[in-house]
């Protein structure tokens, strides 16, 4: 009887989810199986079924795999650094050693309100040798050079997201009842020891959550490098996988771009899913 209401609750979201999530995924897969063929040099263009031809091109596309390697290197360095800082700041805020917790929590969180595009524009100016407030530094080190620009972008992403991740971990710390620490403190455990042996294991689910979001975010990098193309010629039109999708679709070669999209989405899905499963198994064993 009461279940009669279920469609009213589920259908509005369901319809939109099908129309703007499932259908596009299906459509991308279909498009990626087609190719454009031209009969003769000046003949009419038509779309024909190409099987896995586009995927073969994806797997032979050097720049695409280079871009995946680039975001992989980025992720291996930037994600642990960012989450490490976020964890340390959350633990410090929770340690009772900090006066003005409210202020610091807000100050660290503010950059999250700034969209990636705007943050990248700001930092682009800050890195530039002529305009930067850190002129002595930026004139000695070229943050926009081919060697460094990836890490300059990593700094922008870190700047935006540390506070957000810190807040997730800090919220999880606040949810732990203080009696848990009291016993350890009675036994003479110091702050450091309590943080390492009690707090970190307790907030592990929050750390896993932030890691998954960071992995997804890293593979999707687009806005920041796209903005940096105006500041540095080292950022090419295939610098990240998503930039490759965008520049391939602007050629336009929609079939190949669709194949890139599918491969990227699958990679993202498999990586984040595998990470979730791996951490779940480990916590089940403990």
């Amino acid at each position: 009887m009461k279940n009669r209401a279920v469609p009213i609750f589920v259908v509005p979201f369901g319809v939109l989810f099908i129309a703007f999530y499932l259908v596009p995924i299906g459509y991308a897969v279909v498009q990626s199986l087609y190719k454009v063929e031209r009969s003769g040099t000046f003949g009419p263009v038509r779309e024909v079924f190409g099987g896995l031809d586009q995927y073969q091109r994806v797997f032979q596309d050097g720049p695409f795999w280079a871009s995946l390697g680039r975001v992989a290197a980025f992720g291996v360095v930037q994600v642990p650094v960012m989450l490490g800082i976020a964890l340390i700041l959350a633990l410090l805020l929770d340690s009772g050693l900090v006066k003005g917790r409210r202020f610091f929590r807000l100050a660290f969180f503010v950059p999250y309100a700034i969209p990636g595009v705007i943050a990248a524009i700001m930092w682009g100016f800050l890195y530039s040798p002529n305009l930067s407030p850190l002129k002595p530094v930026t004139s000695a080190i070229d943050f926009l050079s081919a060697d460094l620009v990836l890490w300059s972008i990593a700094n922008v992403v870190t700047w935006v997201y540390v506070g957000y991740n810190m807040l997730i971990i800090y919220s999880a710390l606040l949810a732990v009842p203080t009696e848990v620490y009291e016993a350890a403190r009675m036994d003479g455990a110091g702050q450091f020891r309590i943080a390492w042996s009690i707090k970190i294991p307790l907030v592990l689910p929050a750390i896993v959550l932030t890691t998954v979001f960071s992995i997804i975010g890293t593979l999707q990098l687009l806005a920041e490098p796209q903005v940096f193309r105006s500041f540095s010629s080292a950022v090419t039109s295939t610098y990240t996988p998503n930039l490759t999708v965008y520049s391939t679709s602007s050629i336009p070669n929609f079939n190949l771009a669709a194949a890139f999209s599918v491969v990227l989405a699958l990679t993202t899905f498999v990586l984040s899913f595998a990470f979730l499963k791996a951490t779940q198994r480990r916590s089940a064993e403990q």
Partner: peptide
């Protein structure tokens, strides 16, 4: 299905959405 949707990045949908 919805949970899998969380792991599908929104950017992967942009191109097919444009085509549709």
């Amino acid at each position: 299905i919805v949970l899998s949707g969380v792991l599908v990045p929104a950017t992967a949908l942009a191109l097919p959405l444009f085509l549709i």
